Computed example of a mutant assay.
Amino acid sequence: MESTVKKIDEGTINIHSLKQYNEKELFEIYNQTKDKTIRNELVNRYLYIAQILSKKYINKGIEYEDLYQIASLGLIFAIERFDITKGFEFSSFATPTIIGEIKKYFRDKGWAIRVPRRIQELSKKISNTRNVLTQELQRTPKVIDIAEYLGCTEEQVLEAMDASQVYTPKSLDISYDNSGDDKDVQLKDLIGENDKYFDILENKDFIKESMKKLNELEVKIIKYRFFENKTQSQAAKLLDVSQMTISRMEKKVIDKFKKELNKMEE
């Protein structure tokens, strides 16, 4: 192993030279050098784990691209923390680390409207309790059944059940049967609204003025993402940058918009 580390220290490290080493050797080298080129090679070799775990959580309210990005970050965290001397397989160590990052992202970002953490956690417990009690009672459990099982009040159960509705909000295009009429009524037709023309004019003026303060790249990102509804991945390909760059620039632009909005409200 000494000769391997010596070769790395001599500055001969590159992606092609790393192909000759197996994963165990790369981890040993990385633990001693912390060279990002080695880390990137390890990420590429184990990226399939992030892909597999991301796909397990699709169709749960968050886009696959976002899940894959979070899983990839989890993979990097796992590589940084992995100790080859412990004798564990990296895949066994990385899997719970990546899943933990994905679940954390769901917990913090998956709700359409922010609700207190205690209610989010109680909502999850209620969902699991329903399944357990349905089997035990051979019927749909009542609120009082769930409350007694979890050791909380009925009010707390009702509060969490009500809040859980914002996790996956209903589409405004959902239709309801309109008795006595051949045409169904959509949810958006039942909701009151402000004067849309006033809002449109006000928003267009705000966006127009705010866009003047953006650079050329930021303007293109806003155009692709919010006017042409392209995904971060599609925008990245068009601009020949990484998806991470698009995500970072997008947050930067939104922060600029927020500052401009705050100035208007002052």
Score class of each variant (00 low, 15 high):
residue 2 E to T: 12
residue 5 V to K: 11
residue 6 K to F: 10
residue 6 K to N: 13
residue 7 K to M: 13
residue 7 K to G: 11
residue 7 K to Y: 12
residue 7 K to H: 08
residue 9 D to H: 14
residue 11 G to W: 10
residue 23 E to A: 09
residue 23 E to R: 07
residue 23 E to M: 07
residue 24 K to D: 15
residue 24 K to G: 13
residue 25 E to C: 03
residue 26 L to D: 08
residue 27 F to S: 05
residue 28 E to Y: 08
residue 29 I to Q: 03
residue 30 Y to P: 03
residue 32 Q to V: 04
residue 33 T to M: 01
residue 33 T to I: 02
residue 33 T to L: 01
residue 35 D to H: 06
residue 36 K to I: 13
residue 38 I to Y: 00
residue 40 N to G: 09
residue 41 E to R: 00
residue 42 L to N: 00
residue 45 R to E: 09
residue 46 Y to R: 13
residue 47 L to C: 11
residue 49 I to Q: 00
residue 49 I to D: 00
residue 54 S to E: 03
residue 55 K to M: 13
residue 58 I to P: 02
residue 61 G to R: 04
residue 62 I to R: 02
residue 62 I to G: 01
residue 63 E to V: 09
residue 66 D to F: 12
residue 67 L to C: 05
residue 72 S to I: 00
residue 72 S to K: 02
residue 73 L to M: 09
residue 77 F to M: 13
residue 79 I to G: 00
residue 83 D to L: 08
residue 90 F to I: 02
residue 92 S to M: 08
residue 93 F to G: 04
residue 95 T to H: 10
residue 95 T to G: 06
residue 97 T to L: 06
residue 97 T to K: 04
residue 98 I to T: 01
residue 101 E to R: 01
residue 104 K to T: 07
residue 106 F to S: 07
residue 109 K to E: 00
residue 113 I to K: 09
residue 124 K to E: 15
residue 126 I to A: 03
residue 127 S to Q: 13
residue 127 S to D: 09
residue 128 N to D: 07
residue 131 N to K: 14
residue 131 N to V: 15
residue 132 V to Q: 09
residue 134 T to P: 05
residue 138 Q to T: 03
residue 141 P to R: 11
residue 143 V to W: 12
residue 146 I to M: 06
residue 147 A to L: 05
residue 147 A to S: 01
residue 147 A to C: 05
residue 160 A to P: 00
residue 161 M to S: 11
residue 162 D to K: 14
residue 168 T to D: 14
residue 173 D to T: 01
residue 176 Y to V: 03
residue 177 D to L: 11
residue 177 D to M: 14
residue 179 S to V: 15
residue 180 G to D: 10
residue 182 D to P: 06
residue 183 K to P: 12
residue 183 K to R: 13
residue 184 D to R: 13
residue 185 V to A: 06
residue 190 L to S: 13
residue 194 N to T: 15
residue 195 D to W: 01
residue 204 K to P: 07
residue 204 K to H: 08
residue 206 F to P: 00
residue 208 K to I: 15
residue 209 E to I: 15
residue 210 S to I: 06
residue 210 S to D: 05
residue 211 M to S: 08
residue 211 M to I: 13
residue 214 L to A: 02
residue 215 N to A: 05
residue 215 N to I: 02
residue 216 E to L: 06
residue 216 E to S: 11
residue 219 V to W: 14
residue 220 K to Y: 06
residue 220 K to F: 06
residue 220 K to D: 09
residue 225 R to M: 06
residue 228 E to L: 10
residue 231 T to K: 03
residue 231 T to E: 01
residue 235 A to M: 11
residue 236 A to N: 02
residue 240 D to L: 09
residue 242 S to Q: 10
residue 243 Q to M: 14
residue 250 E to A: 10
residue 251 K to G: 07
residue 253 V to K: 02
residue 259 K to C: 04
residue 261 L to F: 15
residue 263 K to W: 08
residue 264 M to H: 09
residue 265 E to Y: 14
